[in-house]
Write a protein that binds this DNA or RNA. Structure first.
Length: 489
RNA sequence: CGGGGCGUAGCACAGCCUGGUAGUGCGCUCGGUUUGGGACCGAGAGGUCGGAUGUUCGAAUCAUCUCGCCCCGACCA
């Protein structure tokens, strides 16, 4: 029993907020809309970063870093892009403060006004393409495959920990290519990387697809995305990859000489995932006891709780588990031995469940006599007593099994909450429950009307969708395939 | 940015209506007993009641203004 954690079924939103805070992932800061990511939460993010970074490197990308500030004149060069972000930009107008001549404190020095305002980056296409102008002259300079880990700011009216904050951490890949085909392949490749990460590391099944024009990234020709289903039946866009065409190259006047000695504009992509994935991770797997972490992303994979009365007992237990700890670490498994005497075992059990530690071992004097150890799984909340001999190997396999089970559970949930709607009545009835596959006539007008009536949006047109003649669920006009509708975060 | 709510100890809240000694639980400190699912007893520490102004002999309490946060909408990764 967790004390005071709201139940998912009663108040999903409160449940989410409480888990994030109680599991020590993050908290609201004194700065409006900005969160503090706490050590335990940041450790999970670092694991995500590590896995993603390896995958980026394995696909030929290098990391670099570009400025936090974007001169306003850069941002406005790509018109659609500028329009898309204009409403949510933080703007730096001055570079100095001074003592308030009328009293205490500081005021902005009116004489320190910048000649040109600087925008705190909401995304970095503009600064990066300004740099690429100097980097690209010949087809031999291409492709450019760059990623940056950074923070960005989007002045959101309403924020929620991890899911939507005014400042967030992310990675943004920005590539330039000699041909359209190559850039499209890159955008699709990185979407695949995201899907693989979501499924193999986060244990979260995703649908890969493309956005409709109205949901596209500002300045993109095509936006690819992965969409995941959360436990309350709402969709969460978990990563995007954009084919930017030649829009940015043209806006920033970046050209290269091709093999035929002709001037051409390079083709671009950009792609990103953010700390929003932390929110996805919480909402995809956790339960009323707290967080459930997939072993591959858990900062602590195994926790050992000793149960003892006297100091001598603890010494005996420690002597018994030390070799096990070493063995587990040699297998690359992260272990915490919690011999802190501040809390009793029951408290610790509840605490590690709240924090989502995949495997918990408990060992007391009874076990020492029997040569056993108690092993508890976070995903199933089951426990069993096993011989301590060979326990490390058993745990290694168990962690794999838990990773798989968490994925299987999430996939089962998604399958059970994915519906087919062939009439408007069906659609309206099902749309609160999860993904709804329905025919769409391809018009922005119909898309907009459906959104206005139900708050549901087209999450994506799945890449693997099959051609199937049908009628639009709303307008009745002909349609060639089904798209995925859902209410979204 | 519209609608609603809330600011009182580290956290969660009561007290406010009907003005008069600032409280409860958790947490914290110390001592002791405990330890196989969130232990217990005893003793302590901790507050400019978000801020400003006003009414009053007297304001956490009433009034006006202001700042901040949360929730629900519109906008969005």
């Amino acid at each position: 029993m967790s004390k005071g954690l709201p139940k998912r079924s009663e108040d999903y939103s409160a449940w989410y907020n409480e888990i994030v805070k109680r599991a020590d992932l993050a908290e609201n800061s004194a700065v409006r809309g900005c969160m503090v990511i706490k050590p335990y939460g940041f450790a999970i993010w670092e694991k995500m970063q590590g896995a993603l970074d390896d995958m980026f490197k394995a696909t030929g990308h290098q990391n670099a870093y570009f400025p936090l500030f974007v001169p306003k004149s850069f941002l406005e060069l790509e018109e659609e892009h500028a329009e898309g972000f204009a409403k949510e930009c933080a703007v730096v107008t001055h570079y100095r403060l001074k003592n308030n001549p009328d009293g205490k404190g500081l005021i902005v020095d009116p004489e320190a006004k910048l000649e040109e305002e600087l925008i705190v980056r909401p995304t970095s296409e503009a600064v990066i393409w300004n740099s690429y102008k100097g980097w690209i002259q010949s087809w031999r300079d291409l492709p450019i495959l760059i990623n940056q880990w950074a923070n960005v700011v989007r002045w959101e009216m309403r924020t929620r920990l991890f899911l939507r904050t005014a400042e967030f951490l992310w990675q943004e890949g920005h590539t330039a290519h000699a041909t359209e085909q190559e850039a499209i392949e890159e955008a699709e490749r990185m979407l695949g990387v995201y899907a693989e990460f979501a499924e193999n590391w986060m244990a979260m099944p995703v649908i890969q697809g493309v956005k409709t024009p109205s949901e596209r990234f500002a300045g993109a020709v095509e936006t690819y995305c992965i969409e995941a289903l959360m436990q309350d039946g709402k969709a969460l866009q978990s990563g995007t990859s954009h084919f930017l065409g030649q829009n940015f190259a043209k806006s920033f006047d970046v050209k290269f000489v091709n093999k035929d000695n002709e001037l051409e504009y390079p083709w671009a992509t950009s792609w990103g995932v953010s700390t929003r994935l932390m929110g996805a991770l919480v909402m995809a797997h956790s339960d009323d006891q707290g967080l459930v972490l997939p072993p591959k992303l858990a900062p602590i994979q195994v926790v050992i709780v000793p149960i003892y009365r006297a100091e001598e007992d603890l010494a005996q237990i420690t002597a018994k588990v030390d070799p096990v700890i070493n063995e587990l670490r040699l297998l690359g498994i992260s272990v915490k031995f919690d011999d802190d005497d501040k809390y009793k075992p029951g408290y610790k059990f509840a605490e590690y469940e709240l924090k989502g530690v995949p495997v918990r071992l408990a060992i007391g004097m009874r076990d020492l006599e029997n040569g056993t150890i108690e092993i508890a799984r976070r995903d199933t909340l089951t426990k069993e007593s096993r011989s301590i001999d060979g326990i490390a190997e058993y745990i290694r396999n168990l962690l794999d099994e838990i990773q798989q089970n968490i994925y299987d559970q999430a996939l089962k949930f998604r399958d059970e909450n994915t519906y087919i709607a062939d009439s408007w009545d069906e659609f309206k009835e099902l749309i609160d429950k999860g993904f709804v596959l329905a025919h769409w006539d391809g018009s922005a007008e119909t898309e907009e009307k459906i959104k206005a009536e139900t708050k549901a949006t087209i999450r994506c047109i799945p890449l693997n969708s099959v051609e199937e003649a049908g009628e639009d669920v709303y307008s009745g006009k002909p349609s060639a395939k089904r798209v995925v509708f859902a209410k979204a975060y």
